[in-house]
Simulated scan of single mutants.
Amino acid sequence: MTEARGSAGPHARRAPGTPCWVSLMVHGLAATERFYGTLFGWEFQPGPQQLGPYVRALLDGHDVAGIGHLPPDRRLPVAWTPYFASRDVDATADQVRLCGGTVAVGPLDAAEAGRMAIAADPSGAVFGIWLGAAHLGTSISGVPGTPAWNELLTFETTAVAKFYETVFGYEEEPEISADSDHVTLRAGGRPVAGLSGLGHALPGDRGAHWLTYFQVADTAETLLQVTELGGRILDPAHDSPHGRVATVADPEGAVFSVVEDPS
């Protein structure tokens, strides 16, 4: 997980399939800004308004994420959505459709920020496709308050891994184990995302979905803040090979994980 946290700078061209942005659409934008601003130390500035009110979250002046107001006519989940880099959003969207996925929004231009689409894989997990201009994209990583990893939680990995491999050109690195169904996706030789097949343990109320991890300095302190700010703890803190991890939900129910770097 932690290997993928080095990010390209805002003026670098990202390899296709590289996670380059993470975005959240919510009903209460001001309240959500207060929650994440307190939790992660983010500040906010206006962003592209193509889908309605939208703000860029900044940490020490660097873009890290986006939060927008959920349009009433858009059937999108209140969930963190990772965006993966593309050099041709329209061609990638066509490939999504050819491989059995769907495109829910776009492709469309996000003002001068770039071109984007929101899609779903054949299992229904939602993700974004992004070709960004030089001035917008996650441009800092490896410090508290920044995205650290994206993991797809799905029923089984075989078919969906082929989908992402075909759409984005990933290389697959399966984990060989009798009791584990896990694949690491690599782009440009680097691990960039993971796929976890949960079988019947996949939450029935959510189905397949992407889960974003944010780095924190202290998992215990973060969980205390989450509850004080009106969020919920879904999976208490526990040790993992990548650090101390927990899964939480914000006051609107958007689920994300936090990870404390063991180093």
Rank of each mutant, 00 (worst) to 15 (best):
A93W: 10
D109S: 04
G106C: 00
A85W: 01
F84G: 14
L70N: 05
A93H: 12
P71Q: 07
G68C: 10
D94N: 10
L76E: 08
A85P: 02
I67N: 04
V89E: 05
T92P: 14
S86F: 08
W80F: 06
V89D: 05
E112V: 07
A93M: 11
R75M: 01
P82W: 02
T102P: 15
P82G: 04
M116V: 04
Q95C: 15
A91Q: 12
S86R: 08
R97W: 11
Q95K: 15
D94A: 14
M116A: 03
A110W: 02
R75T: 02
E112Y: 03
V96H: 13
P71I: 08
R115D: 00
V103Y: 00
R97E: 11
P107C: 06
A93S: 14
A93Y: 09
P82I: 03
A79M: 08
D73R: 11
P107H: 05
L70M: 08
R74T: 02
A113H: 09
D109P: 03
D88K: 10
I67G: 06
D109K: 04
A85Y: 01
D94K: 09
G114V: 00
V96D: 10
A111R: 03
D94H: 09
T81N: 05
R75Q: 02
G114L: 00
P72Y: 06
G101D: 03
L76F: 06
T92M: 13
V105Q: 04
D109M: 02
F84S: 12
P107T: 07
Q95F: 09
S86P: 13
R97V: 13
A93F: 10
A113T: 07
P107F: 05
I67T: 06
G106I: 01
T92A: 15
T81D: 03
A113W: 06
D94C: 08
E112C: 03
A91E: 09
R87Q: 15
L108C: 12
A104Q: 09
P72M: 07
H69I: 04
T102C: 15
P77V: 02
C99K: 14
D73C: 13
P77Q: 01
R97I: 13
